[in-house]
Amino acid sequence: MYIIGELINGMYRNVREALAERDASAIKTLARRQVEAGADALDVNCGPLSKDPVQDMRWLVEAIQSEVAVPLCLDSTKQAVIEEGLKACRGKAIINSTTADTDKLDAYLALALKHRASLIALTVDKKGVPQDKERRLELAAFILERAAGAGLDAAELYLDPVLLPVNVAQNQLEDILRVIGDFKLLTTPAVKSVVGLSNISQGSKNRSIINRTFLVMAQAAGLEAAILDPLDQELMRSLITGALILNKAIYCDSYIEAYLKSKLKS
């Protein structure tokens, strides 16, 4: 599983304060800790309260990449913010995210191609979040068609079926698990999928166990990537054990330690 650490987000108070005070060391520590815990990439989001998200994005990207060299997942609903992040980003970037609306999708595909970035595409459009599997697949097929037309390699694309909170749309979660498998049937080689995991437990009690149970179920359904909290040790241990059960890693008594040691390439 490709793990994108979610903790550098202006929605969290520590990040908001670090942004306001331009406290780079706080951001660097968050970056370092997530990578050490097993994150392959880091999500970067200035948060909804940022007064100058363009400058905040640049500052965050610069602070993070002075500490770690992992790909950065530039997370914003505003194109100008994503573009500023792409300009500042020295390594690999992942654009998070576009919707399936033609104008936005085409603009983001062009950006991804220009900056050799990966692109997360949500299977939603102006009409809103699909209420069933069929509509999600229809939007996924549309996204794949536009991406192929634009010339973006399918390996650079992640489809996000958009997780809804379990206390809001409980009846949709089984469909979402199934659609993760169905996405793979749309192209050869199969397109990858990603979810923003924490959404599922938004507003619930017992968030941690809801997150990790869904993650392991999605892993079994073939999910390739997730935006999550890598410092949640039980979540990570479940994920690593799930990979073992799916025969993605060779068993040994210290398989959790082995997984983390393999991640932290010196």
Partner: peptide
């Protein structure tokens, strides 16, 4: 035994 091979490498390292 590939499992023991892996485990022993971890122990030694």
């Amino acid at each position: 035994d590939v499992n023991i091979a892996k485990q022993l490498n971890i122990l030694i390292s």
